[in-house]
Amino acid sequence: MTSTVLSPLSPRITGFPFPFRTDTYRYSTNVEAARSPVATEAGGWGSGILDVDDEYAAELAARERILAADPSRLTVLPHMRPACWDALRTLLRELADLHPDAMELRRDGNHGDRFVWRNDLLGIEQRFRDGDDDSLPRGPLGFLGSQIQDDIVLLDQRDGSLWADAGLVTFAADWSLRFDVGMRFLEVHGPVPRVHEEGIISRAERFLMRLEPGQEYRRTNWTMSVDRRLDQSTETYPEWGRDRRLVAGAPADELANRLQLRVEVQHLIRLGASGAVLFLIRTYMLSLAELAQVPAWRARFGRVLAELPEDMAEYKGLTRFRRAAADWLLTS
Rank of each mutant, 00 (worst) to 15 (best):
V153H: 05
A102E: 15
V226H: 10
R194P: 11
F179Q: 15
A164H: 06
R244D: 15
D227C: 02
A164K: 06
E198W: 07
R114E: 13
R184T: 12
D113F: 14
D132M: 05
V195R: 02
R114Y: 11
R178N: 14
D132C: 05
V116M: 02
Y237K: 13
G214Y: 04
R245G: 11
V181C: 02
W175Y: 12
D113I: 13
Q232L: 10
R229A: 08
F207H: 03
A166E: 02
I201E: 00
D180L: 13
W163C: 05
F171C: 04
P238A: 11
D174V: 14
E212T: 15
R194L: 11
I200P: 01
D120N: 14
N110W: 14
T234C: 12
S135Q: 01
L144D: 06
T220I: 12
T223Y: 03
A173V: 08
F128G: 00
I124F: 00
S161I: 09
L155P: 01
G241K: 13
W117L: 15
Q215L: 03
V169C: 03
T223K: 11
A102L: 15
G190V: 12
W163D: 03
Y237G: 15
M183Q: 09
F115K: 01
A166Y: 00
L141W: 02
D156Y: 01
L154F: 04
M209S: 10
Q149L: 14
I124R: 09
R242E: 10
Q157H: 09
D134P: 05
I152Y: 04
P137R: 01
M224E: 10
D134I: 10
G112A: 13
R118I: 09
R107E: 01
D159I: 06
D150L: 06
D165I: 08
D156M: 09
D151F: 01
L105V: 06
E216G: 07
L162Y: 04
R219G: 02
N110A: 13
R218F: 03
R194M: 13
W117S: 10
G112P: 05
G112F: 04
L208V: 12
E216C: 04
Q126Y: 07
D151P: 02
V192H: 08
D133Q: 13
W117N: 11
F185L: 07
R127K: 10
D151K: 00
S176I: 12
R129C: 08
G112K: 08
P238C: 11
N119K: 14
L121H: 05
T234A: 14
V195I: 13
G142M: 01
W117G: 11
V153C: 14
A173C: 07
D120M: 15
G112M: 05
S233L: 02
F115E: 10
E125K: 04
R210W: 07
P213K: 12
R114M: 14
E205N: 04
S202T: 05
L208F: 09
D231C: 00
R158S: 01
S176K: 06
L186A: 08
D133F: 01
L186F: 02
S135M: 03
G112E: 15
D156I: 11
S202A: 13
R138I: 04
E216D: 01
L136R: 08
R127L: 06
P140N: 02
H196M: 12
D243R: 15
